[in-house]
């Protein structure tokens, strides 16, 4: 039976050599110029696919490493603010700054309040100073194992607070 069919099929193909082959194989291959696929940036591609950005700053655990770094930057900004503030005050105010300091001393606001004001002025300075030294040490390629980073971090904080207290109590 199979032989019969095979023979019959072969016969059909042979007899209609032009017709059937053309019918089952209508593909013609033509050479064409290579078109480079459009280059797509990483961000564009992902945005097109509607992929969300995974959460970052809001979910990452605040650790000593990152917290000391961000506060170094903050104290830097605060110090710049102080410098600009006092500079502008020296230019804009009618009397020299010493006059206002004397006024403040005469106002008798209490030692605790005075200490607090001095501390807010002194702490950014001491913190930025001591952490800056820590960064200088890092730049020389030392104290960069995680144990040393934590050790220098805590001791820097202690020294910064202590020196700020000393500065603001005298």
């Amino acid at each position: 039976m199979a032989l019969l069919f095979r023979l019959a099929g072969r016969q059909i193909l042979r007899s209609q050599n032009d017709g059937l082959y053309k019918f089952v194989r209508p593909v013609t291959l033509q050479p064409s110029q290579y078109v480079e696929p459009a280059k797509e940036g990483h961000d564009e591609r992902n945005m097109k696919l509607g992929r969300p950005q995974s959460p970052h700053l809001t979910i990452y655990k605040p650790q000593l490493t990152s917290m000391l770094s961000i506060s170094h930057r903050t104290t830097g900004i605060i110090l710049a603010g102080y410098a600009m503030m006092f500079g502008a005050a020296a230019v804009g105010l009618e009397c020299p700054l010493e006059y206002y300091i004397e006024q403040l001393q005469c106002a008798e606001v209490g030692p605790a309040c005075l200490f607090g004001m001095k501390f807010t002025l002194a702490f950014p300075l001491t913190y930025h100073f001591w952490n800056g030294i820590r960064h200088l040490l890092w730049d020389s390629g030392r104290f960069l194992s995680i144990k040393e980073v934590y050790l220098t971090g805590w001791s820097m904080l202690a020294v910064a607070i202590a020196s700020a207290i000393v500065l603001s109590s005298c």
Partner: peptide, 26 residues
């Protein structure tokens, strides 16, 4: 790199990328 050292802190293989970057700068 601003030497935040989060990298060294979380590396599961206990490597020190922060130190490598400091030495790269040197």
């Amino acid at each position: 790199c601003h030497q935040i050292n989060n990298c060294t802190n979380c590396c599961p293989k206990k490597l020190k990328p922060g130190k490598a970057i400091a030495h790269l700068r040197l």
